[in-house]
Design a binder for these strands. Structure first.
Lengths: 348, 348
DNA sequence: CGGTTCGGCTGAACCGGTTAAGCGATCGGT
DNA sequence: ACCGATCGCTTAACCGGTTCAGCCGAACCG
C-alpha cells in the first residue's frame, strides 16, 4: 500500500540504491542488462519518483513554476486572456512534467510577497510575470530573490530579465489607418490603467498614428479593463458634445460593454459608431454586431514564454524575443461613417 | 547568499537542530526564553522552511492542492466560472500557506493521468474536483490512489467523497414559474452536454417544473457550453416552425451567443423572445439587453470547498454540504410575451 | 536525604532521492 | 605477464527538515 521507493526496487533487483538511481535516470554507471531489469521492476512496482525527495537532493528542481495574476477579481473571471495563457504555458510544461502554481492577488505588494514566499520556501523553480507596469518593482525583486523569471511584455523596464514582447505600435497604426480610411476623424482610444507599460506604449503609438493620419479629434482616455468602467467611460464619451465616431478599446471586455452602452443610448453600431477591441476572443464573435478585434495568439505566447523559462532553468542564456504582432479581424462593428447621422449630430 | 537552514540557526543559538525545530513549530520541548531567542535569530537570518524538506520528513504535507479543469479550451477562456472558483479557493488556501496547482486537460483520461502523477510523485496533498459526470470514474480513481479529494457537485455519483452540492431544482422551478407567469408556454432549455451530472439534474427538474406549470411546449436540447454551439442551437430553435418564446441556457456564454443570434435573425428580445442565463457574471450585465440570470456565489463555493478539503487533510471527518441555491436576477432579457408578435408567428 | 518526576535539551535516525568516492573485476596494450 | 584504464557496482554522505529515545539537572515528595 505504501508508495514504492528506490530502496524497494534495489532490494527486488538485488542491487544498491545508487545503482537504481543511475538506471532510472539514464546515466552511465550500470550495465544495459541491469538497467533493463531495474526499469522493469520499477514499472512493475509502479514506482514514481518522490518529488519532494528529488527537490531536496543536491540542488534539485522542484519541478514547478509559478504565475501570479494581479488584476481586480471582477474583470479577471471574464478575461479570456489568462486562461488561454495558462493553457498555453501548460501544454509546454506538461511535456517536461513541470507543474504550474497559480496565484491570484489583489495588489503588487501581495504579489511580491508571493514571490518571496515561493523563493524562500522553494516552492517553484521560476516564475512567469505578466502585466508589466511603469516603474515595475518586480523585475528587480525577483532578481534580488535569485528567482529565475521570464516576462511577458517589455522589453522596456524588464531590467535584465528575458522577455517576450509584442510591438503593438504596428497593430495600432493598422487600426488607425483602417478607421481613417473608413472616414473616421474623431477616434478615441479607451485604454487600460496608465500604470501598465503596454498601455503607455499603445497610447503613444495611437497618438502618433493619429497625428500621421491627420486625425485632429483623436485622443486617449484611461479606464481599468473592467466592464463597468468601460461602460461608464463609453457613456461619458457618447454623451459629449463632440461625439466620437470610432472607439478603440484596450480589451475585449470593455469593448463589449461599450457596445452595450451604444445600444442603450440608441447609437447605432457601425453606422454611427465603429468599435474595435483589443484581444480577440470568442466573446467578440458572439455579440451583435460582432466586434472587429485585434487578435493575438495568446496560447502561442504562453507556450513560447514557457519554453523560454524552461531554457532559463536549464541555465542557458536566453535572449528576449519579439513575438508576432496582433492581426486585425474586421467584423460587423466597424464600417464607413454614414454621413447623414454624423451631420445630424455635428451640425449647427 | 545560501538560504539559511535550521542548522545555521542552531549554530547561532548554540543549540541543536532538534531544539530549533521544536521552537519554530511552537511545540513543547524548549523553554520560552530559548524559543524567543531562536525565533529572533530565525527572523534575523530571514529563514523560511524548505518546503521539499518538510514534505519529505515523516509523513509531511507538500502544502499544495490541485485542481484539474477539463473543458474544451475554447469555452474555457471565457467562462468566468473557473477563475472565480480559483480565486475563492485561493483566498482560503493562502491563509494556511497552501498553494494551488492548476492543470487544464482535454479529456477525462488525461485528467486521471494527472491525478495519478500528482499522487505518485507526491505533488499535492489533495485535489478539488469539479464537473461531475454521469458514471464519473474520478471519485473511484482518486480513492484508489489514496488521494484526498472533495467534490464540487454531486452528491449522486460522488462515491464516498465529501462534496459541496447545490440543489438546482429549486432554481429551475423558480425560472420556469417566472417564465410561465410572464405568459410563456413554449420554453426550451439549452443545456450542457448530457454527460454532466448537473445537466441531467437540471434537465429533469426542468421537465418536471414545466409539467407542473402546464407548459406543454417545453423541452430540452443539449449543447456543449461553447458560444459557437450555443449559437448554432439557437439558430435551429428560432428557425423552427413552432418557435420557442423563451430560452433557458445552462451557462452565460451560450446565452450571450443566443442573444446574438436573436439579433441576427431579427427576433426581438424580450418582446418576442425571453432569455435566461445560468451563471451570472459581468458578461450578463454588459450585453444589451442585459441578461436575466441565475447567479451563484462561485467565489464562496470555492472558499467553502477549500475549507472542506483543508479539514479532510487534517484527517477530520467531513460531511457533504449543500450550498445555497442560485438566485434569479431578472434583467432586460425577459419580459411578458407581446401577443401581436406571437400571433403573427403561431397563427394559421 | 534518596528516589521519582518532569522540563529542557541533545543525538541520531529517518524521509527518498542524488552523487562523489572507492573498489574489485575485466580488458586492452605492450 | 604485468600495468593501467575502464566498467559496473557499492558505500556513504548529503539535501533540510521532523521526531523519538535518552540524558542531565532541578524540583518535588515522602
Amino acid at each position: 500500500m505504501r508508495r514504492p521507493t528506490i530502496m524497494d526496487i534495489a532490494k527486488a533487483a538485488g542491487v544498491s540504491k545508487g545503482a537504481v538511481s543511475y538506471a532510472l535516470n539514464g546515466r552511465p554507471g550500470v550495465s544495459e542488462g541491469t538497467r533493463k531489469r531495474i526499469l522493469d521492476i520499477a514499472s512493475d512496482l509502479g514506482w514514481a519518483p518522490s518529488n519532494p525527495a528529488r527537490a531536496l537532493a543536491a540542488g534539485g528542481r522542484v519541478g514547478a513554476v509559478g504565475l501570479v495574476v494581479d488584476r481586480p477579481s471582477r474583470s479577471l473571471g471574464i478575461e479570456p486572456f489568462f486562461m488561454q495563457l495558462v493553457s498555453g504555458i501548460e501544454t509546454e510544461l506538461s511535456a517536461t512534467g513541470v507543474d504550474l502554481l497559480l496565484q491570484v492577488t489583489e495588489d503588487t505588494d501581495t504579489e511580491l510577497a508571493v514571490y518571496r514566499r515561493w523563493a524562500s520556501e522553494r516552492r517553484v523553480d521560476g516564475v512567469v510575470m505578466v502585466d508589466l507596469r511603469v516603474d515595475d518593482p518586480r523585475p528587480a525583486a525577483v532578481r534580488g530573490l535569485g528567482l529565475p523569471a521570464v516576462l511577458l511584455g517589455g522589453p522596456g523596464g524588464a531590467g535584465d530579465l528575458p522577455c517576450l514582447y509584442t510591438d503593438d505600435s504596428s497593430s495600432v497604426r493598422e487600426v488607425v489607418r483602417y478607421l481613417a480610411a473608413l472616414g473616421h476623424r474623431h477616434v478615441v482610444q479607451v485604454s487600460g490603467p496608465e500604470e501598465f507599460a503596454h498601455t503607455v506604449d499603445r497610447g503613444e503609438a495611437f497618438r502618433e498614428a493619429a497625428d500621421r493620419a491627420g486625425l485632429a479629434g483623436a485622443y486617449s482616455v484611461h479606464s481599468d479593463y473592467t466592464g463597468e468602467a468601460g461602460a461608464r467611460t463609453t457613456r461619458r464619451l457618447l454623451a459629449a458634445a463632440e461625439r466620437p465616431t470610432a472607439l478603440v478599446y484596450d480589451n475585449d471586455l470593455m469593448a463589449v460593454a461599450g457596445l452595450g452602452v451604444a445600444a442603450e443610448m440608441g447609437v447605432d453600431v457601425p453606422s454611427q459608431l465603429s468599435i474595435v477591441a483589443w484581444d480577440d476572443s470568442a466573446l467578440c464573435r458572439l455579440v451583435r454586431p460582432s466586434l472587429t478585434a485585434i487578435g493575438r495568439d495568446v496560447v502561442g505566447h504562453g507556450r513560447q514564454v514557457a519554453r523560454m523559462l524552461g531554457r532559463v532553468l536549464e541555465g542557458e542564456p536566453v535572449a528576449s524575443q519579439e513575438s508576432s504582432a496582433g492581426e486585425l479581424h474586421p467584423r460587423g462593428s466597424t464600417g464607413p461613417l454614414v454621413v447623414s447621422h454624423v451631420s445630424a449630430v455635428t451640425s449647427e
